[in-house]
């Protein structure tokens, strides 16, 4: 039994190491020519643009819900005026980036894993290699870069739509004007709240793209393996986003003390 547990631990560590090396290789390859701009743009379109409606709608709904919850809490203290600022702080600092990462990992991570896994089991990757195309750079790096670019953008959309949703909820209840709402929403937001929280989603994009691409490239056992890869991509990416978020938040507090 100990041997099996030990073997499992070793296998897990080996997989983590391979994923890490996969990601580092992707970063290094991204800096080296030739640059696949066309593929990057295409993936930004696929990952970012096509995810925007999902993110916008989710953000809008989250903004409404957050506004209602914030009101229920703050009106006990007679601090309704703090609702816009509280909602904006919550969205910009944490809710927006984390929810965006989880949604993207579900939609994009599964897609990348399934797409690359299908290419792997159907030997399309081998065909690319046979055609003297760097399959890693062409397939994996471009997707990882697209994820890194798209995630902050999607997070901004999530934040914006969330604040708008909060405004609609607030104006429905209290009739607050949008000028006053946005003025109050940003009354407590500092650059240190906004920039690090938004930029950390690039790390989320790196995690999603790397894990999904690695699992796609590692797919075996035919179509069954493709489905398993898709599922593992979502689960691992989501889990790593949540875990990495803890580290990133602590790192932000360390680098930008005023945000604590």
């Amino acid at each position: 039994m100990y041997a099996r547990v030990g073997a499992a631990i070793l296998a897990a560590l080996a997989e983590v190491g391979e994923v890490s090396l996969f990601g580092l290789r992707a970063l290094r390859e991204a800096l080296l020519p030739p640059y696949e701009f066309g593929e990057v743009i295409r993936h930004v379109y696929e990952i970012g643009w096509k995810s925007a409606p999902l993110i916008a709608l989710s953000g809008f709904a989250i903004g409404i819900v957050l506004s209602m919850h914030t009101r229920a809490s703050l009106e006990r203290f007679g601090a309704e005026a703090m609702i816009p600022a509280g909602l904006a702080i919550a969205l910009i600092r944490e809710t927006g980036p984390l929810v965006t990462g989880l949604l993207v990992s579900g939609r994009v991570g599964a897609g990348i894993g399934a797409e690359l896994g299908a290419m792997k089991v159907t030997e399309q990757i081998d065909a690319l290699e046979a055609s003297a195309v760097d399959s890693f750079k062409y397939l994996a790096v471009t997707r990882i870069i697209a994820c890194i670019i798209a995630m902050p953008m999607l997070t901004l959309i999530m934040d914006f739509c969330g604040i708008v949703g909060g405004y609609l909820a607030e104006s429905t209840i209290s009739g607050m004007s949008w000028q006053l709402y946005f003025q109050r929403a940003f009354s407590l937001v500092e650059f240190n709240d906004f920039i690090p929280a938004t930029m950390k989603t690039a790390v989320f994009g790196m995690i999603i793209g790397t894990i999904a691409s690695y699992l796609g490239f590692s797919t075996t056992q035919g179509t069954e393996g493709v489905g398993r890869t898709s599922t593992r991509s979502v689960v691992l990416a989501s889990m790593m986003i949540i875990v990495s978020n803890v580290v990133l938040v602590k790192l932000i507090f360390f680098l930008f003390p005023a945000t604590g």
């Binding site: 743009i41 925007a52 953008m153």
Partner: peptide, 28 residues
């Protein structure tokens, strides 16, 4: 390509939102 336009629009919207946020915070 429509995909290129879409990707460009996506990036522009993202940068626009980023700028707007910076403006709001800077104005405050």
């Amino acid at each position: 390509s429509a995909k290129v336009v879409g990707a460009g629009a996506f990036v522009v919207v993202g940068l626009l939102l980023f700028t707007v946020a910076l403006f709001f915070i800077g104005e405050r």
